[in-house]
Simulated assay, not measured.
Amino acid sequence: MALATRSLWNIPNILTVSRVALIPVLLVVAYSPLIWRHEIAAVIFAVAAITDWFDGYLARTLNQGSAFGRFLDPVADKLMVAAALILLVEWHSHVLMVIPAIVIISREITISALREWMAEIGKRAQVAVSSIGKWKTAAQMVSITVLLLDWEIFNALGWVLLYVAVVLTLWSMCVYLLAAWPSLREVD
C-alpha cells in the first residue's frame, strides 16, 4: 500500500494537483481590490502554464508517469484555461472575447468527449495529442497570460495570440475529428 501511495504523490502529480489548487487562488486575486491584481493573476496563470509543461517533462524523464497523472493533467489544463477565459470574458465583456472563449471551451469539451469515446471502443491512439494541439496550447497559455496582465503595451500581442489560438483550436479539432471519422461513421 505504501508503494502505491508513493507513486501517486510523485513530483509530476503534485505539480498537476497544484495547478488545480491555483484556480481558486487566481479567482480570489482577480476579484480582490489589490492594485496589482492583474499582474498577480498573470503570474499565477503563467506558473500554472509552466507546471503544465514541467509535470509532463518530469513524468517522462523520471519515469514517474501514472494513471492518476494521465487522467488529471488534461483536466487541470482545461479547468485552468476555462476559469481564466471566463474571467477574461468578464474583464473584456464584448463579442471579441466571448467568441474565442466559447470556441476554445467548446473544443475542449468536444475533444475530451471524443477521446473518451475512442478509448471506450479501443481506438484512443487515433486521437492522441498532435503537434498542432501543442501549438494551440502554447498560444492559449501565452495569450491568456498577456491578457490577464492587461498592460496596454502588450494587449495587442495578447489579442493576436488569442485569435491564433482560436485558429489552431479549430484546426486541431478538425484533425482529431477527421482521424476519428471512420469510427464515427460505423453503424452499431
Rank of each mutant, 00 (worst) to 15 (best):
L157T: 11
V166T: 12
E152D: 13
W181L: 06
L147F: 09
S130F: 02
I153K: 14
L162D: 06
L157N: 00
Y176Q: 09
R124M: 04
W159T: 05
I121G: 00
L177P: 02
W159M: 11
L162H: 10
E120K: 13
C174A: 15
T137E: 03
A128M: 12
L157H: 01
T137N: 07
F154H: 06
V175L: 12
A165I: 12
F154N: 06
L149W: 12
E152P: 02
T145R: 07
P182E: 04
A156C: 00
L149N: 02
V175H: 14
V127D: 01
A179S: 04
I132P: 00
L149C: 10
D150A: 15
L161S: 01
T137H: 06
A179K: 13
I121W: 06
M141P: 05
Q126C: 07
A138P: 00
L162Y: 13
T137D: 05
T137M: 15
M173F: 07
I121R: 11
I132K: 10
P182S: 09
S130Y: 10
T169Y: 10
L162A: 07
I153Q: 14
L157R: 01
F154G: 01
W181Y: 14
E152A: 10
L178F: 14
V164H: 01
A139D: 04
V142A: 05
L168F: 15
V142N: 03
W151Q: 14
P182I: 03
G133C: 02
L168I: 11
V142S: 01
V160S: 06
G158Y: 11
T137Y: 02
T169L: 08
S131Q: 11
L157S: 09
L157A: 12
A156V: 09
I132S: 07
S131L: 15
V127F: 07
W181R: 00
V166C: 09
V127G: 03
W171N: 09
R124H: 04
S131Y: 14
E120M: 11
A180K: 12
T137S: 13
L147C: 07
Q126N: 13
D150Y: 11
G122L: 10
N155Y: 15
G158E: 07
N155T: 06
A165R: 13
I153S: 13
Q140C: 10
V160I: 14
K136W: 06
K134H: 08
C174I: 12
I144A: 05
W135N: 02
D150M: 14
L168N: 11
K136C: 08
V167E: 00
Y163A: 11
L162V: 04
L161F: 08
K123Q: 14
L157K: 03
